[in-house]
C-alpha cells in the first residue's frame, strides 16, 4: 500500500503504524499526542472528517480502547488513531476515569457529541469540552452503563417486576434426565417381569 509508505510514515515517523487486511491503517499513540496527531492529520494530510470515536472496554486488560476513526475523501483511506485509556474510576463518587482525554471539538464540531456520549456511557473524563451533561440517560445513579462491569440483567431484575403466569416452565435438561431414568427403570422392570415368567 503506497499511502502508508508515502504519506503516513513520513508524516509520523517513530509511531507504530500497522495496516490490516481490510485496508485500515492504525496508529497506536499515547494520550498526550492525540491533539498533535489529530490536527496534523487534519491540516497536513487533509483528513476532513472524523467519522466516529469508538470505544471498547477490555476489562481483563484494564483499559478502554479508544479508536478515533478518520476518513479522507481525497485519498479514500481510513485511519484509526488508537489509544488505551486506563479504566480505573475516580474514588470521589463522580464515576469518571482518572485519566482524561482532550476534546477535539475545536477541530471537528461533531466530536463534541461523540465525546459527550463517551463521557456518559463509558465514564471517560474529557477536558476542554463545553457541554458535559446527560445525553441519553436521565438521572443515572449507577456506574456508566456501557462498561463491562455493569450487569444489565441484574439491573433489570432489581428495577422491574415480571408478570406472573410463567412459573410452570420447566428445565429441559432435568426433565430429559428424569424421563430417561423413568424409561430405564421401566425397561428394567419389564426385564424383571420377563425373567419371572
Amino acid at each position: 500500500m503506497s499511502f502508508i509508505n508515502d504519506k503516513l510514515i513520513p508524516t509520523f515517523p517513530g509511531y507504530n503504524i500497522t495496516t490490516d487486511d481490510q485496508g485500515i491503517h492504525k496508529i497506536n499513540i499515547e494520550i498526550d499526542n492525540l491533539i498533535t496527531i489529530a490536527s496534523r492529520l487534519h491540516n497536513e494530510l487533509n483528513f476532513e472528517s472524523l467519522q466516529t470515536i469508538s470505544c471498547a472496554d477490555w476489562i481483563e486488560d484494564g483499559y478502554l480502547q479508544l479508536n478515533y476513526i478518520f476518513y479522507s475523501y481525497e485519498f479514500n483511506q481510513t485511519v484509526f488513531v488508537s489509544l488505551n485509556l486506563p479504566r480505573e474510576l475516580k474514588d470521589d463518587g463522580s464515576k469518571r476515569t482518572i485519566s482524561t482525554i482532550p476534546s477535539l471539538q475545536n477541530i471537528w464540531p461533531q466530536a463534541n457529541h461523540f465525546e459527550r456520549e463517551l463521557w456518559e456511557m463509558f465514564g471517560v473524563s474529557v477536558t476542554g469540552h463545553n457541554s458535559l451533561k446527560e445525553f441519553f440517560l436521565e438521572d443515572w445513579q449507577q456506574i456508566p452503563p456501557m462498561r463491562r462491569d455493569f450487569d444489565t440483567l441484574d439491573f433489570v431484575n432489581n428495577s422491574f417486576e415480571f408478570r406472573p403466569g410463567r412459573e410452570d416452565a420447566m428445565d429441559v435438561a432435568t426433565e430429559r434426565k428424569r424421563v430417561r431414568e423413568a424409561k430405564a427403570s421401566e425397561v428394567t422392570k419389564g426385564a424383571d417381569v420377563n425373567e419371572q415368567k
Partner: peptide
Amino acid sequence: LRRMQVKGPSMVHAMS
C-alpha cells in the same frame, strides 16, 4: 461480540 458501535448519519445531522 465485545463491542458494536453504530454511527448513523443522524448523529451528525441532527446533533451538530
